[in-house]
Design a protein around this nucleic acid. Sequence first.
DNA 1: TAGATTGTTAATCGATTAACAATC
DNA 2: TAGATTGTTAATCGATTAACAATC
Lengths: 231, 231
Amino acid sequence: MYQLLIMTKKDLHRKRPRTEIPEPTLRRLPRYLHFLQGIWEQGQMNISAPAIARELNYDPTQIVKDLSYTGAVGKPRVGYVTYELIRIIEDFLSLNTKSEAILVGAGNLGSALLSYDNLSGFGIKIIAAFDVAPTKVGTQIGNVSVMHVSRLNELVTRLKVEIGILTTPARIAQEAVDIMVDAKIKAIWNFTPTFLQVPDSVVVQNTSMYANVAILLQRLKELKNKQYGQI
Amino acid sequence: MYQLLIMTKKDLHRKRPRTEIPEPTLRRLPRYLHFLQGIWEQGQMNISAPAIARELNYDPTQIVKDLSYTGAVGKPRVGYVTYELIRIIEDFLSLNTKSEAILVGAGNLGSALLSYDNLSGFGIKIIAAFDVAPTKVGTQIGNVSVMHVSRLNELVTRLKVEIGILTTPARIAQEAVDIMVDAKIKAIWNFTPTFLQVPDSVVVQNTSMYANVAILLQRLKELKNKQYGQI
DNA sequence: TAGATTGTTAATCGATTAACAATC
DNA sequence: TAGATTGTTAATCGATTAACAATC
């Protein structure tokens, strides 16, 4: 009776209700999509979850579960209609409506993203880049103009851009983010190793090269230990 | 009594024993490291798990647990010695011994990685790049020579390179991987959206831009639903 | 000493996997 | 019809979080 009223530490940190799609599912969906596009091009009209599972080396029930999040419905004994499934996943991931984004920090990585055509292939279109270096400002990288950061607020506000890509040096990352937040950017794709301070009304997606290297090196180490036995 | 002998489906798919560090931990460690380097430069000699937790917005016990994997030991009431902790995490993640790597596919993303100085800052040094385009072969990108793929096997075998970075177009990804595996590459960092077929003796780390965009767009969508209520 | 923090063990929570009924 | 596959519910597993004793 009593217990029901006690607010545990957990409650304070509790995540959003439960409309949330599990992150592992979101990671797998683009992989399914890529696979489906491949077989579609080869003219395969239908595809079953077990067939996808065999090809991508996943558990078949996991695929069924992941697909059920998207609202896709399949036929027993036949599977899903390839084309429909592709459309449903694309819709679900909002890959059809290209979201406009700006990029801050036109250095190595920033330039790469600007000239990385593929980026537009999955739902994001970079419409402007910002930097402070006089050598960068005024230039064009991959058809995108690089402007001085002082113009960020005006442009973002005017065009109502919601997504910001952060590729500055770590040292000035928070500063750049503050400017973005000020301009009402709603989602930040963070390529710096910095932990960003943002209000609750802004989402941050961290893509850390560091984390990926760390995992790779560790798995390689584990592989060796396994092979030679842990002496 | 009976049950003990039954081999479930689970057993077949079972992962390596349990020497394995959880992936979430491996993702967080580089973040701790970056934070620690920052406070070390500011002259802070000691740091406690709760203090790290406050700054990085994590649960304090999670930090204690993560750090315990690295073998770091702290003092109650004081915390960890900043410098020691940095060294221990770096050692643990093998970031001190620079591993040599080769890169296949010197396109947009490949070029970016080649000229991305930071990469060498976390344990990986690209010593050669490979491509098939005559316009690329023979050039230098970020101090790394681009050679024809036909030379991959010889060079990798001779220098005993264990890590391969894959940045080719998705279409030829598997082909490139077969060449790497043939040359006894042990770990592949895959930037293509392709599911790679490799023998058990090779580890693959997938870094998918697609997955990251998918998560970002989804979280942004959820954020909006939360704010305006789901009508 | 008192109190903060470590470090370990137990509880909880969420994602994956298994089981199975529905169905084409 | 028989059998493969979907789709849902239950069981399991692993990571996170809580609890708490040890200790500086």
